[in-house]
Amino acid sequence: MGMALTDLANPTRFLALVARALPWLAAATAIVMAIAFYLAFFGSPADYQQGSTVRIMYVHVPSAWLSLFCYALMAAASIGTLVWRHPLADVSAKAAAPIGAAFTFICLATGSLWGRPMWGTWWIWDARLTSQLILLLMYLGLMALWRAVDDPGRAGRAAAVLTLVGTINLPIIKFSVDWWNTLHQPASVFRLDGPTIHPSILTPLLVAAIAFTLLFVTLHLAAMRNEILRRRVRAMQMVAAQREMPAGAAPVPGE
């Protein structure tokens, strides 16, 4: 195991592993996603209270879970960046941010589309919804920070600190429905006394969660590969720029 992790720290070996794994992951994602959509539209009964809008839950809930999982992964990677300076930690965090932002946006948009017919409103400044919106802003802020600083090393360390500060929002999102009186319903799957959802609805939900997780892993590995290539391009462009610099010219300080 330790040996495997050491091997993965080498970007060249990581790229070779990703090249082998991506086609299988993409195929597995497509198959499980097709099953999830079939179950969502044809296998799931209408809920006795929500009617057919329960089908929105099959994309809303997995997106919400992944929005939190993705940020937790970025936080773990940030520790890897700051403490161990693992060569792939910052790459992992940076590659995950846009994907996490996408899942957070889907969570908010589909929640709004469910809320209009069920609650009678598109949006309310309730603790769960507001903390989830803050998560989206955190993702967008981190993406902006990575773009604002040219040097990937400096950008990575600054983003790692900001990511770790932002982890305070994760328990707030998770427990907001318990700590405050919210319009958003409390947890119904991850509970100490077990899920409160009927198996006919829980099964499609869990299959959708597996499909979305496979998609996340596929997209994340592909985005990490792009980021490694981007850094190689940058390094080679700097070598080319130094080579083409006129003799006697001094590089600009800080460049």
Binding site: F41, A46, G51, S52, T53, R55, I56, V59, H60, S63, P98, I99, A102, F105, I106, A109, T110, L113, W114, R116, P117, L215, L219
Partner: peptide, 24 residues
């Protein structure tokens, strides 16, 4: 669920999901 009065909301949710993930 063709007869459900909220079909538009359901289809819009799946459209948002597919388009967003497709763009990424």
């Amino acid at each position: 669920f063709g007869s459900d009065p909220h079909t538009g909301f359901i289809l819009a949710s799946y459209a948002v999901t597919v388009i967003t993930l497709g763009l990424v």
